[in-house]
Design a protein around this nucleic acid. Structure first.
Length: 326
DNA sequence: CATCAGGGCCCTG
DNA sequence: CAGGGCCCTGAT
Protein backbone atom coordinates (compact mmCIF):
# COMPACT_ATOMS: atom_id res chain seq x y z
CA UNK A 1 0.00 0.00 0.00
CA UNK A 2 1.25 3.48 -0.85
CA UNK A 3 1.80 5.80 2.05
CA UNK A 4 1.20 9.53 2.33
CA UNK A 5 2.45 11.85 5.01
CA UNK A 6 -0.17 14.47 5.86
CA UNK A 7 1.94 17.23 7.33
CA UNK A 8 -0.34 20.24 7.03
CA UNK A 9 -2.86 20.84 9.76
CA UNK A 10 -5.85 23.13 9.92
CA UNK A 11 -8.15 23.34 12.94
CA UNK A 12 -11.78 24.31 12.76
CA UNK A 13 -14.94 23.96 14.82
CA UNK A 14 -18.48 22.68 14.39
CA UNK A 15 -21.52 23.70 16.37
CA UNK A 16 -24.00 20.82 16.23
CA UNK A 17 -27.60 21.48 17.16
CA UNK A 18 -28.18 20.65 20.84
CA UNK A 19 -28.62 18.18 22.35
CA UNK A 20 -25.62 16.42 20.83
CA UNK A 21 -24.01 13.21 22.04
CA UNK A 22 -20.43 13.11 20.76
CA UNK A 23 -19.46 9.53 21.48
CA UNK A 24 -22.71 7.92 20.40
CA UNK A 25 -22.47 9.83 17.14
CA UNK A 26 -18.78 9.33 16.50
CA UNK A 27 -18.60 5.67 17.41
CA UNK A 28 -21.06 2.94 16.44
CA UNK A 29 -20.23 -0.24 18.33
CA UNK A 30 -22.39 -2.31 15.99
CA UNK A 31 -20.10 -1.56 13.03
CA UNK A 32 -17.39 -4.02 12.17
CA UNK A 33 -13.85 -2.81 12.85
CA UNK A 34 -11.82 -1.39 9.97
CA UNK A 35 -8.47 0.26 9.75
CA UNK A 36 -9.70 3.60 8.39
CA UNK A 37 -10.81 4.84 11.77
CA UNK A 38 -10.05 4.85 15.45
CA UNK A 39 -12.05 5.97 18.46
CA UNK A 40 -11.56 6.63 22.12
CA UNK A 41 -13.98 8.53 24.37
CA UNK A 42 -14.05 12.13 23.18
CA UNK A 43 -11.86 11.59 20.10
CA UNK A 44 -12.33 10.07 16.68
CA UNK A 45 -9.76 9.73 13.90
CA UNK A 46 -10.95 9.08 10.36
CA UNK A 47 -9.41 9.01 6.93
CA UNK A 48 -11.20 10.63 4.03
CA UNK A 49 -10.75 10.80 0.30
CA UNK A 50 -12.60 13.83 -0.97
CA UNK A 51 -12.47 15.78 -4.22
CA UNK A 52 -9.18 14.15 -5.11
CA UNK A 53 -7.44 14.88 -1.81
CA UNK A 54 -6.49 12.52 0.94
CA UNK A 55 -7.32 13.88 4.38
CA UNK A 56 -6.86 12.83 7.96
CA UNK A 57 -9.57 13.97 10.35
CA UNK A 58 -9.36 14.20 14.10
CA UNK A 59 -12.61 15.10 15.86
CA UNK A 60 -12.56 16.12 19.50
CA UNK A 61 -15.34 16.72 21.93
CA UNK A 62 -15.05 20.21 23.36
CA UNK A 63 -18.46 21.33 24.57
CA UNK A 64 -21.24 19.58 26.42
CA UNK A 65 -24.44 17.85 25.33
CA UNK A 66 -26.37 21.07 25.79
CA UNK A 67 -23.68 23.40 24.38
CA UNK A 68 -21.91 21.18 21.90
CA UNK A 69 -18.72 22.06 20.08
CA UNK A 70 -16.74 19.64 17.96
CA UNK A 71 -13.16 20.60 17.21
CA UNK A 72 -11.84 19.18 13.96
CA UNK A 73 -8.20 19.02 12.95
CA UNK A 74 -7.86 18.47 9.21
CA UNK A 75 -4.55 17.00 8.07
CA UNK A 76 -3.56 17.21 4.42
CA UNK A 77 -0.50 17.06 2.21
CA UNK A 78 -0.88 20.55 0.75
CA UNK A 79 -2.50 23.61 2.22
CA UNK A 80 -6.24 23.61 1.50
CA UNK A 81 -8.03 26.60 0.02
CA UNK A 82 -10.78 28.48 1.82
CA UNK A 83 -13.34 27.31 -0.72
CA UNK A 84 -12.34 23.68 -0.38
CA UNK A 85 -12.56 23.89 3.40
CA UNK A 86 -16.01 25.49 3.31
CA UNK A 87 -17.35 22.72 1.11
CA UNK A 88 -15.63 20.08 3.21
CA UNK A 89 -17.32 21.42 6.31
CA UNK A 90 -20.70 21.29 4.58
CA UNK A 91 -20.01 17.72 3.63
CA UNK A 92 -19.06 16.74 7.16
CA UNK A 93 -22.09 18.50 8.59
CA UNK A 94 -24.22 16.36 6.32
CA UNK A 95 -22.44 13.03 6.78
CA UNK A 96 -22.38 13.30 10.56
CA UNK A 97 -25.87 14.82 10.72
CA UNK A 98 -24.59 17.64 12.95
CA UNK A 99 -27.48 19.94 12.06
CA UNK A 100 -30.28 17.43 12.63
CA UNK A 101 -33.34 18.57 14.53
CA UNK A 102 -34.34 15.71 16.81
CA UNK A 103 -36.64 17.71 19.07
CA UNK A 104 -39.84 16.16 17.75
CA UNK A 105 -38.33 12.68 17.88
CA UNK A 106 -37.26 13.19 21.49
CA UNK A 107 -40.60 14.64 22.47
CA UNK A 108 -42.55 11.80 20.89
CA UNK A 109 -40.69 8.93 22.51
CA UNK A 110 -38.81 10.08 25.60
CA UNK A 111 -41.83 9.43 27.83
CA UNK A 112 -42.25 5.80 26.73
CA UNK A 113 -41.37 3.39 29.52
CA UNK A 114 -38.53 1.34 28.08
CA UNK A 115 -37.75 3.21 24.89
CA UNK A 116 -37.65 6.56 26.68
CA UNK A 117 -34.91 5.34 28.97
CA UNK A 118 -32.78 4.35 26.00
CA UNK A 119 -33.44 7.56 24.12
CA UNK A 120 -32.52 9.60 27.16
CA UNK A 121 -29.37 7.57 27.68
CA UNK A 122 -28.17 8.39 24.16
CA UNK A 123 -29.94 11.69 23.70
CA UNK A 124 -28.43 13.60 20.82
CA UNK A 125 -27.03 10.59 18.99
CA UNK A 126 -26.99 11.16 15.23
CA UNK A 127 -27.13 8.99 12.14
CA UNK A 128 -23.50 9.34 11.20
CA UNK A 129 -21.91 7.93 8.09
CA UNK A 130 -18.20 8.49 7.96
CA UNK A 131 -17.67 7.56 4.32
CA UNK A 132 -18.97 8.52 0.89
CA UNK A 133 -21.80 6.74 -0.91
CA UNK A 134 -19.30 4.88 -3.10
CA UNK A 135 -17.34 3.73 -0.08
CA UNK A 136 -20.48 2.70 1.77
CA UNK A 137 -21.52 0.61 -1.23
CA UNK A 138 -18.17 -1.20 -1.13
CA UNK A 139 -18.70 -1.98 2.54
CA UNK A 140 -22.29 -3.04 1.84
CA UNK A 141 -21.12 -5.45 -0.84
CA UNK A 142 -18.44 -7.10 1.30
CA UNK A 143 -21.04 -7.56 4.03
CA UNK A 144 -23.31 -9.62 1.82
CA UNK A 145 -23.65 -13.28 2.69
CA UNK A 146 -20.51 -13.37 4.78
CA UNK A 147 -19.44 -13.66 8.39
CA UNK A 148 -18.02 -10.61 10.13
CA UNK A 149 -14.54 -12.11 10.07
CA UNK A 150 -14.73 -12.62 6.35
CA UNK A 151 -16.07 -9.15 5.62
CA UNK A 152 -13.24 -7.66 7.64
CA UNK A 153 -10.73 -9.74 5.68
CA UNK A 154 -12.19 -8.74 2.32
CA UNK A 155 -12.05 -5.03 3.11
CA UNK A 156 -8.54 -5.38 4.50
CA UNK A 157 -7.37 -7.18 1.35
CA UNK A 158 -8.89 -4.45 -0.81
CA UNK A 159 -7.20 -1.74 1.26
CA UNK A 160 -3.84 -3.46 0.96
CA UNK A 161 -4.07 -3.80 -2.79
CA UNK A 162 -5.82 -0.59 -3.82
CA UNK A 163 -5.93 1.72 -0.81
CA UNK A 164 -3.57 4.33 0.59
CA UNK A 165 -2.05 4.58 4.04
CA UNK A 166 -2.25 8.02 5.60
CA UNK A 167 0.11 9.10 8.34
CA UNK A 168 -1.23 11.89 10.52
CA UNK A 169 -1.40 12.77 14.19
CA UNK A 170 1.03 9.95 15.03
CA UNK A 171 -1.29 7.37 13.47
CA UNK A 172 -1.31 5.41 10.24
CA UNK A 173 -4.77 4.60 8.93
CA UNK A 174 -6.04 3.20 5.64
CA UNK A 175 -8.03 5.22 3.15
CA UNK A 176 -10.19 4.20 0.21
CA UNK A 177 -9.17 4.09 -3.42
CA UNK A 178 -10.92 6.10 -6.11
CA UNK A 179 -13.69 4.45 -8.16
CA UNK A 180 -11.36 4.83 -11.18
CA UNK A 181 -8.87 2.53 -9.53
CA UNK A 182 -11.27 -0.42 -9.45
CA UNK A 183 -13.26 0.28 -12.58
CA UNK A 184 -10.82 -1.43 -14.94
CA UNK A 185 -9.32 -4.25 -12.91
CA UNK A 186 -10.10 -7.81 -13.93
CA UNK A 187 -12.53 -9.99 -12.09
CA UNK A 188 -9.79 -12.58 -11.64
CA UNK A 189 -7.52 -10.06 -9.92
CA UNK A 190 -10.29 -9.16 -7.47
CA UNK A 191 -11.20 -12.76 -6.81
CA UNK A 192 -7.67 -13.35 -5.57
CA UNK A 193 -8.57 -11.07 -2.69
CA UNK A 194 -11.18 -13.63 -1.61
CA UNK A 195 -14.17 -11.48 -2.42
CA UNK A 196 -15.76 -14.32 -4.40
CA UNK A 197 -18.71 -13.56 -6.64
CA UNK A 198 -18.80 -10.01 -5.27
CA UNK A 199 -15.91 -9.15 -7.63
CA UNK A 200 -18.28 -8.37 -10.49
CA UNK A 201 -20.38 -6.05 -8.31
CA UNK A 202 -17.32 -4.18 -6.99
CA UNK A 203 -16.20 -3.47 -10.56
CA UNK A 204 -19.62 -2.51 -11.92
CA UNK A 205 -20.38 -0.21 -9.00
CA UNK A 206 -17.02 1.50 -9.48
CA UNK A 207 -17.76 1.95 -13.17
CA UNK A 208 -21.12 3.56 -12.42
CA UNK A 209 -19.33 6.29 -10.44
CA UNK A 210 -16.65 6.74 -13.10
CA UNK A 211 -19.07 7.22 -15.98
CA UNK A 212 -21.28 9.53 -13.92
CA UNK A 213 -24.29 7.22 -13.82
CA UNK A 214 -24.08 7.51 -10.06
CA UNK A 215 -23.56 10.91 -8.43
CA UNK A 216 -23.88 11.24 -4.67
CA UNK A 217 -24.49 14.98 -4.46
CA UNK A 218 -27.08 14.83 -7.22
CA UNK A 219 -28.85 11.89 -5.58
CA UNK A 220 -29.15 13.86 -2.33
CA UNK A 221 -31.47 16.31 -4.08
CA UNK A 222 -33.86 13.53 -5.18
CA UNK A 223 -36.74 12.03 -3.21
CA UNK A 224 -36.42 8.74 -1.38
CA UNK A 225 -38.09 6.51 -3.97
CA UNK A 226 -35.97 7.93 -6.78
CA UNK A 227 -32.89 7.29 -4.68
CA UNK A 228 -34.07 3.74 -4.06
CA UNK A 229 -34.65 2.99 -7.73
CA UNK A 230 -31.34 4.54 -8.75
CA UNK A 231 -29.41 2.50 -6.20
CA UNK A 232 -31.27 -0.71 -7.05
CA UNK A 233 -30.17 -0.30 -10.66
CA UNK A 234 -26.60 -1.01 -9.56
CA UNK A 235 -25.45 -4.56 -10.17
CA UNK A 236 -25.00 -6.46 -6.92
CA UNK A 237 -26.99 -3.97 -4.89
CA UNK A 238 -30.39 -5.12 -3.66
CA UNK A 239 -33.05 -4.22 -1.13
CA UNK A 240 -30.97 -5.00 1.97
CA UNK A 241 -28.00 -2.85 1.01
CA UNK A 242 -30.25 -0.07 -0.27
CA UNK A 243 -32.20 -0.06 2.99
CA UNK A 244 -29.07 0.62 5.00
CA UNK A 245 -27.98 3.33 2.57
CA UNK A 246 -31.30 5.20 2.57
CA UNK A 247 -31.07 5.46 6.34
CA UNK A 248 -27.34 5.85 7.01
CA UNK A 249 -26.23 7.81 3.97
CA UNK A 250 -29.36 9.74 3.00
CA UNK A 251 -30.78 10.12 6.53
CA UNK A 252 -34.29 8.83 5.93
CA UNK A 253 -35.23 8.14 9.54
CA UNK A 254 -38.29 6.14 8.53
CA UNK A 255 -36.65 3.73 6.09
CA UNK A 256 -37.29 0.18 7.27
CA UNK A 257 -38.79 -2.39 4.98
CA UNK A 258 -36.20 -5.14 4.92
CA UNK A 259 -35.28 -7.28 7.93
CA UNK A 260 -32.73 -10.10 7.57
CA UNK A 261 -33.02 -13.32 9.60
CA UNK A 262 -30.47 -12.40 12.28
CA UNK A 263 -31.97 -8.92 12.69
CA UNK A 264 -35.41 -10.51 12.93
CA UNK A 265 -34.23 -12.64 15.84
CA UNK A 266 -32.70 -9.68 17.65
CA UNK A 267 -35.78 -7.48 17.19
CA UNK A 268 -38.03 -10.33 18.36
CA UNK A 269 -36.03 -10.63 21.54
CA UNK A 270 -35.75 -6.88 22.19
CA UNK A 271 -39.30 -5.80 21.37
CA UNK A 272 -41.32 -8.93 22.18
CA UNK A 273 -38.96 -10.87 24.45
CA UNK A 274 -39.36 -13.81 22.10
CA UNK A 275 -36.81 -16.59 21.96
CA UNK A 276 -34.54 -16.31 18.89
CA UNK A 277 -35.51 -19.91 18.09
CA UNK A 278 -39.11 -18.77 17.67
CA UNK A 279 -38.97 -15.24 16.23
CA UNK A 280 -41.86 -12.94 15.35
CA UNK A 281 -42.62 -13.07 11.60
CA UNK A 282 -40.95 -10.26 9.63
CA UNK A 283 -44.29 -8.95 8.36
CA UNK A 284 -45.54 -8.52 11.91
CA UNK A 285 -42.37 -6.75 12.97
CA UNK A 286 -42.65 -4.33 10.05
CA UNK A 287 -46.28 -3.48 10.79
CA UNK A 288 -45.49 -3.03 14.47
CA UNK A 289 -42.58 -0.66 13.79
CA UNK A 290 -44.64 1.28 11.29
CA UNK A 291 -47.65 1.72 13.56
CA UNK A 292 -45.69 2.45 16.70
CA UNK A 293 -42.86 4.63 15.47
CA UNK A 294 -44.08 5.95 12.10
CA UNK A 295 -41.70 8.26 10.26
CA UNK A 296 -39.03 7.68 12.91
CA UNK A 297 -39.13 3.90 12.89
CA UNK A 298 -35.58 3.24 11.74
CA UNK A 299 -34.17 5.93 14.00
CA UNK A 300 -35.88 4.25 16.95
CA UNK A 301 -34.45 0.91 15.89
CA UNK A 302 -31.01 2.53 15.55
CA UNK A 303 -31.12 3.83 19.13
CA UNK A 304 -32.10 0.44 20.47
CA UNK A 305 -29.63 -1.38 18.29
CA UNK A 306 -26.65 0.77 19.27
CA UNK A 307 -27.71 0.69 22.93
CA UNK A 308 -27.52 -3.09 22.76
CA UNK A 309 -24.05 -3.04 21.22
CA UNK A 310 -22.79 -0.48 23.74
CA UNK A 311 -23.91 -2.92 26.45
CA UNK A 312 -22.06 -5.68 24.65
CA UNK A 313 -18.81 -3.72 24.99
CA UNK A 314 -19.05 -3.99 28.76
CA UNK A 315 -20.77 -7.28 29.43
CA UNK A 316 -21.42 -10.61 27.77
CA UNK A 317 -24.87 -10.96 26.24
CA UNK A 318 -25.01 -14.71 25.59
CA UNK A 319 -28.12 -14.80 23.40
CA UNK A 320 -26.69 -12.02 21.23
CA UNK A 321 -23.29 -13.65 20.82
CA UNK A 322 -24.99 -16.66 19.24
CA UNK A 323 -26.63 -14.46 16.63
CA UNK A 324 -23.56 -12.51 15.58
CA UNK A 325 -21.69 -14.60 13.10
CA UNK A 326 -18.09 -13.86 13.82
C1' DC B 1 -16.32 -36.60 6.47
C1' DA B 2 -20.59 -34.27 4.14
C1' DT B 3 -24.10 -31.01 3.95
C1' DC B 4 -26.18 -26.60 4.49
C1' DA B 5 -27.54 -21.91 5.37
C1' DG B 6 -26.01 -17.46 5.44
C1' DG B 7 -24.94 -9.84 8.03
C1' DG B 8 -28.00 -11.09 -0.60
C1' DC B 9 -28.52 -10.75 -5.14
C1' DC B 10 -28.92 -12.28 -9.96
C1' DC B 11 -30.87 -15.04 -13.31
C1' DT B 12 -33.91 -18.42 -15.10
C1' DG B 13 -38.21 -20.61 -16.01
C1' DC C 1 -42.70 -14.98 -8.18
C1' DA C 2 -40.16 -19.20 -6.68
C1' DG C 3 -35.92 -21.41 -6.50
C1' DG C 4 -31.14 -22.54 -7.68
C1' DG C 5 -26.38 -20.87 -7.82
C1' DC C 6 -22.59 -18.32 -6.13
C1' DC C 7 -17.24 -17.45 -2.99
C1' DC C 8 -16.56 -19.01 1.38
C1' DT C 9 -16.99 -20.40 6.28
C1' DG C 10 -18.84 -22.05 10.49
C1' DA C 11 -22.37 -24.96 12.43
C1' DT C 12 -24.41 -29.45 12.61
Amino acid sequence: MKQQELGTKKVTEFFPTPPFNFDATMHKPSHFPSNDTQWQPGVRWQTMRWKGNYLGLKFEKVGTIGKPIVRLAIFSKEKLTRGYLDQLMNEINFRYDFQADLNEFNRLFEKETLLGEIINRWKGMRVATYVSLYEYLIVGIVLQNATVRRSVAMLQNLYEKYGVELAFDYKVLSAFWSPERLADVSETELRQLKVGYRAKALIKVSQAFVDGKMDELDLRTKDKETQRQTLLSLYGVGPATVGYILFDVFKHYGELRHISPWEQKIYSKLFFNKDPEDPVPVEKLLTFFDHTFGIYKMLVVHYIWEDLFWQRKNEQIPWLEKLIRL
